[in-house]
Nucleic acid binder design. Structure first.
Lengths: 241, 241
DNA sequence: TCATTTTTTGAACCATATTCATAATTCGCG
DNA sequence: CGCGAATTATGAATATGGTTCAAAAAATGA
């Protein structure tokens, strides 16, 4: 009796189709113009059918963000498995972020919107839960890196929990995404790639924490070499440049 | 002929009334439930009159954010005038941020929403312009601190522009605001005040930049003393605790 | 005082998210 | 197969709330 399974699979496939179509519409016409009717129409289904999958428009958006976060988490998993010092792996987390955002330019906008009071409040509890759960491994992996470093004696926690240590780097990454995406704010401060600058600040911050081995953040060539090495050894298939 | 002036003043007063009422409604019922009709009704005006002041709802929200940013900028001005080392003044910028957010708990949510593609795209160019202009002094002051430090030899730029140096700290602040406001994400990582942690990471980052005189970020007592001193010397009237 | 201009008004309009009664389809079983 | 029950899909109708604009009211000034 594979009927049940088949129906479930078809249902999941249709949901994926809705999500893919929504993504395409956002890419083409912007988040601003996304309409539920249009998604349904483009998939040749009635709006009511769309609502069998998503409790609301916010629900659908949150599902999109969750998809992205899972991909993001996969990248972090790779970093966790990469055989290198905790410091280099922590830096690789920053590089992962940089690559992820390049490959998913719409993600940050969407995520920013999703965590807005308005959208968060209007999504279904189940989706919220799913998003938080998808996020969990991200934190878990990074915290693990800090614990590894502390265990090896590379890093003194100095009274902070591993989570508290991470929050500094986490802020740098999220803050940079904000700045990059806030229209007109970053303006022309940075001729060079802002994410490369983020990587440099990452190193600066790790040095400030006294995380060994220290890295000369002012050595542009060394920084570029390390980034390139990480691209090659960890994200070979994802780095076009 | 003071008639013209009087009318202008009354128009400005009414606009302020609309803004204050909107703020109150947001505080009470949340951004989610803010409606233009309700704002007008609470001020005993017709919706059409409200639209004489604001081209759209987004326009009004952007005006609210701009008001907040001006207050924020005033705090930064105080820091700029504070007679202390550039390093301490740079740190005081972080403290200003902390105090500002405590006093304007709704601001960050609003600002986050305002810089969202959706809202930014739907506001009138004039309001966007005003918001960017209100933001300008913030950047200007912070960049000035970096230039001062570089001029005194406290800080080596190492090939970065003052703006690029600032972006690290700026990211930390904005990222922390994001984390604090993203429902459920920060969870229970930090028993202590997250903004105090931000201050600590600020010092860590400044140390990482090699910004003299270095500060022992692990010395909790010294950190609290410095924060208290800044509250006292710079923001005496704004610090209740 | 009254014609003209400016301002205010709020009902009508419009765009979309969401619902739900009805229709179509699928399922289980004799 | 056939048929009644259960499930699923449909899309017109509803609900909400931002926005407009023709008409009314108020202000101006000669």
């Amino acid at each position: 009796m594979g009927t049940k399974e088949r129906k479930q699979r078809e249902f999941a496939e249709r949901e994926q189709r809705f999500l893919d179509t929504a993504r395409e519409l956002i890419r083409r016409d912007g988040l601003l113009n996304l309409s539920m009717a249009r998604i349904a129409e483009d998939c040749d289904y009635a709006v009511g059918t769309l609502y069998q999958h998503f409790a609301s428009k916010e629900d659908l958006l949150m599902a999109l963000v969750t998809e992205d976060v899972r991909i993001h988490a996969d990248m972090f998993e790779r970093v966790a498995r990469w055989p290198a010092t905790p410091r280099d792996r922590m830096f690789a987390i920053g590089v992962a972020d940089m690559i992820f955002v390049r490959r998913h330019p719409e993600h940050f906008r969407l995520a920013q919107y999703a965590f807005t009071e308005i959208v968060w409040g209007a999504a279904s509890p189940a989706r919220r839960q799913a998003l938080l759960e998808a996020n969990e491994p991200l934190g878990e992996i990074v915290h693990g890196l800090v614990r590894d470093a502390a265990a090896r004696g590379d890093l003194a926690l100095n009274g902070l929990s591993p989570e508290e240590v991470c929050i500094g780097m986490w802020s740098i990454a999220i803050g940079m995404h904000n700045l990059v995406h806030a229209e007109g704010v970053l303006a022309d401060f940075t001729a060079r790639d802002p994410y490369r600058l983020m990587c440099r600040h990452f190193q600066t911050h790790l040095n400030g924490l006294g995380w060994n081995p220290l890295f000369d953040a002012t050595d542009d060539a060394a920084l570029d070499a390390l980034i390139k090495r990480i691209c090659h050894e960890v994200f070979d298939d994802l780095c076009s440049q």
